[in-house]
Write a protein that binds this DNA or RNA. Structure first.
Length: 351
DNA sequence: CACCGTAA
DNA sequence: TTACGGTGG
């Protein structure tokens, strides 16, 4: 789930109107976004949307409609897909797999005797994002004329790199890891709507897009990015999921501010020695010098391939043709208007 | 998540 | 016009 920097970030995050991102490119952690669609786009009993052969289609619905509404707001999405995960992540991936297997068992049980609520809970918990789903999403986005980038390794690292090197204005993800990866700006809640969402109970709250500027975060706490990474390691990241027991973000900040590095803090007895069993340098470099590539394509919007979209959604997966056609019309208009916007902002830079 | 018909 | 709830696949 990534590093929990929420209490530090709360101090400097601010709400953002999508109009503030008009004409700007945003790199989107595709895995993160698609996963959200898979868990959110469901029937009341927790069953995901499926085509007539029983293949899940929730992700396609999310990718299609959400991308169109972003374009209508003038936002230019660049979806960044995961490559091969780093070796260091295998422990965390194992842990997640086990949780899913448990949820799967509980789901089967709930199907026999459980309540709707349990059914929904465990079916969301056992959500899996398969390779096929990622490949299909890429195909759909390409047909839609939306730029995609294939990361050599972590998608979130690549998305952050696109941002820090100026290809995109910000990076969108729910995970704060983006900041450790060096994204200048992190936008959260971009692929959720401003509508309502349940935090597990029946309580509904407004979810609004918010932005976190890396520089604001570092300045606010008087630390550099290396130190932010050390703070992350103490709390626990995907590469050291346990972190240090009893150390949360506030304590980690205090310790790193005082001693500068994890090693110094260990020397002074502020952090237990067992953290040195980790390959700290390796973890740091995964965040500070991640395996990333320059994008191959141009990251510009292109004309949608109407037939291909219809083929994927309507012919392959039984989407309603009228709805899809309506979506395509909105998409074409959105792309046209958004291109106009970026031309304008492009010109503005000359003056 | 978003769409869409219906109600206020 | 917006708000809601049932449905989409």
């Amino acid at each position: 789930m990534g590093v929990d920097l929420s209490s530090l970030v709360d101090e400097i995050k601010r709400e953002i109107q999508l109009s503030e991102i008009k004409g700007k490119k945003i790199s989107i952690d595709a895995y993160n976004a698609i996963y959200q669609f898979l868990t959110a786009i469901r029937q009341p009993d927790g069953t995901p949307l499926m085509d007539s052969s029983g293949r899940v289609t929730s992700h396609l619905s999310g990718v299609f409609y959400r991308t169109i509404s972003l374009l209508e707001e003038g936002v230019i999405p660049v979806y960044v897909f995961d490559g091969k995960p780093p070796e260091m992540k295998s422990q965390e991936l194992d842990r997640r797999r086990k949780i899913k297997e448990e949820a799967e068992k509980k789901l089967q049980k709930a199907k026999e005797e459980g309540s709707t609520r349990e059914l929904k809970k465990y079916s969301q918990m056992s959500t899996k994002l398969t390779n096929d789903m990622a490949e299909e999403s890429k195909k759909l986005l390409t047909a839609m004329g939306i730029p995609i980038v294939q990361a050599p390794s972590e998608g979130e690292a690549e998305a952050a790199y696109l941002c820090s090197s100026g290809y995109t204005w910000a990076s969108a993800s729910q995970d704060y890891d983006s900041l450790l990866f060096g994204a200048k700006r992190l936008v959260r809640n971009l692929t959720l709507t401003g509508k309502r969402k349940l935090p597990n109970k029946d309580i509904y709250v407004e979810i609004k897009p918010e932005i976190i500027e890396l520089n604001d975060l570092l300045n606010k706490y008087g630390i550099n990015r290396e130190q932010l990474v050390d703070i992350g390691i103490l709390i626990g990241t995907d590469y050291d999921p346990e972190g240090i027991k009893g150390i949360g973000s506030k304590t980690a900040l205090r310790i790193i501010k005082k001693y500068g590095t994890i090693e110094k803090a260990v020397e002074k007895g502020e952090v237990p020695k067992y953290i040195l069993d980790l390959d700290l340098e390796k973890i740091r470099s995964l965040f500070l010098k991640p395996d990333v590539n320059n994008p191959e394509g141009s990251l510009e919007l292109t004309d949608p391939n109407k037939d291909e979209i219809i083929n994927i959604l309507v012919n392959e997966h039984n989407f309603n043709a009228d709805r899809v056609n309506n979506g395509i019309e909105r998409l074409i208009k959105g792309i046209k208007d958004t291109k106009g916007l970026s031309r304008q902002t492009g010109l503005d830079q000359w003056f």
